Amino acid sequence: MTDETPDSLIPYDEIVQEALRAIPGRVLKDIERTGALPGNHHFYITFKTQAPGVSIPQRLVERFPDEMTIVLQHKFWDLKVGADTFEVSLTFNQVPAHLVIPFAALRFFVDPAVNFSLEFQVQDSGDEPDPHDAAENDEPAIDGDEGSNVVTIDFGKKK
């Protein structure tokens, strides 16, 4: 008997990631429909700024060349949610910006009001990104506390 697991012909990791990415999509679609965040809910959304389909102003790409975290709480508008992307307008240092973010570019989706967090795999070179500053569009960055509602799925790929 061998300790090696055979390579799967079914892409389970991709299927799970796709299913997990549907969660922020559904939540944001509800916010788009109602026009407001319920109760104390608010979101920290981290995404890869260089991922295919991401459209953000060049000044933000220069400031956040790898990853960026936005906050959806008080100051956002024009939220539009599609099957594969969402669009939102925010202000950064009091300058308005319109962002288009594919769900495939997401790294984290956090709702600190209820201690809920999702972490996603993003296909890239495999190098760890450099630390980045949080965007100043609304609230301070995540304080680093992970709660019991953190969902992380990591499938080790065989080479």
Rank of each mutant, 00 (worst) to 15 (best):
A22I: 08
L118T: 03
F64I: 02
G156K: 11
A22S: 15
F109W: 11
V61L: 10
A83E: 06
F108T: 03
D30R: 14
L106S: 08
V27A: 06
P6D: 15
F120W: 01
A51F: 06
Q121C: 02
S125A: 10
E62D: 11
F76A: 02
E146N: 09
P129E: 06
S89N: 11
L72G: 04
I153W: 10
P57R: 03
L9E: 06
K157F: 00
R59D: 13
P112F: 10
D124S: 08
M1Q: 15
T85M: 09
N115F: 12
I101D: 08
V151K: 03
K29H: 09
A36D: 05
T34W: 02
Q17F: 05
E18N: 13
L79Y: 04
K159G: 10
P96W: 03
R33S: 11
D84Y: 02
Y44N: 08
W77Y: 03
Q123T: 02
Q17H: 07
D7N: 15
M68S: 03
L60A: 06
L79S: 03
S125E: 10
D124Q: 04
V95I: 11
G82T: 11
F86G: 01
S55W: 04
V61F: 05
R59T: 08
A51M: 02
K29L: 13
E87I: 10
P38F: 01
H74A: 12
P140A: 07
T152K: 11
D84Q: 06
V71F: 05
D66V: 04
R33F: 09
P129N: 07
G25Q: 12
P38Q: 05
T69G: 07
V95D: 13
I15T: 02
S89P: 09
D133K: 04
F109S: 05
F116D: 01
D138M: 00
D84H: 05
P65Q: 14
V100Q: 07
E67A: 07
G147L: 06
L72V: 08
A113L: 09
A83G: 02
P112G: 13
K157H: 05
G126H: 12
R107V: 12
I70A: 01
I31V: 14
P38Y: 02
D30S: 14
P96R: 10
E14W: 12
V110K: 15
Q73L: 00
I23N: 07
N137F: 01
A134R: 00
L90M: 14
H42R: 05
E32Q: 15
P6T: 14
R107L: 10
V27F: 13
F103G: 05
T85E: 14
D130N: 08
E67F: 05
N137I: 01
H41A: 13
A83T: 02
K75L: 03
V151R: 06
L90N: 15
E18P: 04
T91W: 07
V114K: 03
K29Q: 13
V151E: 13
F103T: 08
F155I: 09
D13N: 15
P52K: 15
S89V: 04
M1V: 15
V27G: 04
A113N: 05
N115P: 04
D111Y: 03
A97R: 11
P96C: 09
A83P: 00
D111K: 04
Q121R: 04
A22L: 14
S55M: 04
D84I: 01
